[in-house]
């Protein structure tokens, strides 16, 4: 088993992917990127050379590679305090100016956050007034997100989060159990459009009232975080909101002064300048 990669190996991989497939991982945070590549090597029984050969010779392999590279570990209602803040302050704040509004889940992974959002909006009676775009780099995980189907064993932690969020019912109201899986009501995705989009190479494509990008930019270095924040700024209406992960920070980004902090604890920002 390979337990260490040097920078030259990682560089070979990022250069090949950039040239052959157009994805740019050169500005990803190195320690986690290295762990992801090591994991792909281990799970696939590969060496650096056989990995490079597969990336070079097998056009479809890139999708599996991207699926292994991206971190797809998430929970419904992760950080329940954040979701209470959304329900009690942020969404009412948006409603002051707009009866209908748009949300972008950037880096939506397997869709737990999208489901959480729509459960919350449904309980607020707002689901029909909201359009959601959910994007990810990884097409394999987007298909999972569209299926709204999750391992039943994940539901314990999801339910605990939902209870801390103080939802109206039980998560069980929203899914049925089948063969060890929780299959959510497809109605919960009727206002959602899933799309493949790469935050690194993709452009701003629409304007939103709220962007959620929680625990995605932690996999980028500061230079890339700075670039991505510009795209988010460009994708928000004035006075729109941006939510990042609770341990993330924007303070070193060039555009930080175009936002104000709405909630420091839950890391919610509001765009105040174009």
């Amino acid at each position: 088993m390979i337990t260490e990669l040097d920078i030259a190996d990682l560089k070979k991989i990022t250069e090949l992917i950039l040239q052959r497939h157009g994805y740019d991982f050169r500005d990803y945070a190195m320690s986690s990127f290295k762990r992801r590549v090591l994991r792909i090597l281990e799970l696939g029984g590969l060496t650096i050379d056989t990995l490079l050969k597969q990336l070079s010779d097998q056009p479809d392999y890139i999708n599996d590679f991207l699926d292994g590279l991206t971190v797809n570990v998430t929970e419904m209602f992760r950080d329940p305090g954040f979701w209470r803040l959304l329900r009690e302050e942020i969404i009412p704040g948006i409603l002051l100016n707009n009866k209908q509004f748009k949300i972008w889940h950037a880096g939506c992974s397997s869709g737990e956050e999208v489901i959480s959002m729509n459960i919350m909006l449904k309980e607020m009676g707002l689901m029909n007034d909201v359009t959601i775009i959910a994007t990810d780099l990884d097409t394999v995980i987007l298909d999972k997100a569209k299926s709204a189907t999750y391992p039943l064993k994940n539901m314990e932690v999801n339910e605990k989060n939902y209870i801390r969020f103080q939802g109206k019912y039980s998560l069980k109201n929203y899914y049925r159990e089948e063969n060890g899986r929780a299959i959510f009501n497809p109605e919960l995705l009727k206002n959602v459009s899933f799309r493949r989009h790469d935050l690194v190479t993709g452009d701003a494509f629409n304007k939103f009232d709220l962007i959620l990008c929680r625990n995605v930019m932690i996999y980028f270095n500061q230079a890339l975080q700075n670039q991505v924040l510009k795209k988010f700024h460009n994708s928000l209406f004035k006075y729109g909101y941006l939510a990042i992960g609770t341990k993330e920070s924007l303070i070193w980004c060039e555009y930080v002064n175009r936002f104000i902090v709405v909630n420091q604890e839950e890391k919610v920002y509001k765009k105040i300048k174009d």
Partner: peptide, 21 residues
């Protein structure tokens, strides 16, 4: 290390967090 995050150190002498498995 914060709750529910892995804590790494990076070349350049700063921390990075992750939500990996």
């Amino acid at each position: 290390a914060p709750a529910n995050y892995h804590l790494s150190v990076e070349l350049g002498n700063y921390f990075s967090l992750s939500t990996e498995e």
